[in-house]
């Protein structure tokens, strides 16, 4: 158990987080951006669970990660609905087409 240690998990979490951010910043497909969000949230979640095992956070960490999963699902639902709405209005999901509002 202790052979892996906390740091390993934290590194994986950080990598997930950064991958998510990059994904959000580069994907032109709206759905792809939302996938990036999921990655970011998972990075944080992994942190929570790892801390729950290894620090004084204890069970709180696991519970927090549960709530995050549920909230992320809710957010994903709304984001998808909005994305579909965007699609209906613009007939594309390319976010670079969202350029009417600027300045």
């Amino acid at each position: 158990m202790e052979s892996v240690g906390l740091s390993g998990y934290l590194i994986v979490g950080a990598v997930l987080f950064v991958c998510g951010v990059i994904c959000m910043a580069t994907k032109r497909n709206g759905i792809g951006i939302l996938m990036g969000v999921e990655l970011v949230l998972n990075g944080a979640n992994l942190n929570f669970v790892a801390f729950s095992q290894h620090t004084h956070l204890g069970l709180d960490g696991q519970i927090a990660s549960l709530f995050v999963i549920v909230l992320a699902a809710a957010e994903a639902a709304v984001a998808l609905a909005i994305a579909l709405n965007f699609y209906n209005n613009h007939l594309t999901i390319d976010v670079d087409r969202a350029a009417d509002l600027k300045g």
Binding site: F17, N47, F48, L57, D60, G61, V68
Partner: peptide
């Protein structure tokens, strides 16, 4: 995106 960033901060701080 910001929620993700903030959540990461929360996890770090709480950890």
């Amino acid at each position: 995106g910001i929620a993700g960033v903030m959540l990461y901060g929360v996890s770090l701080l709480s950890g």
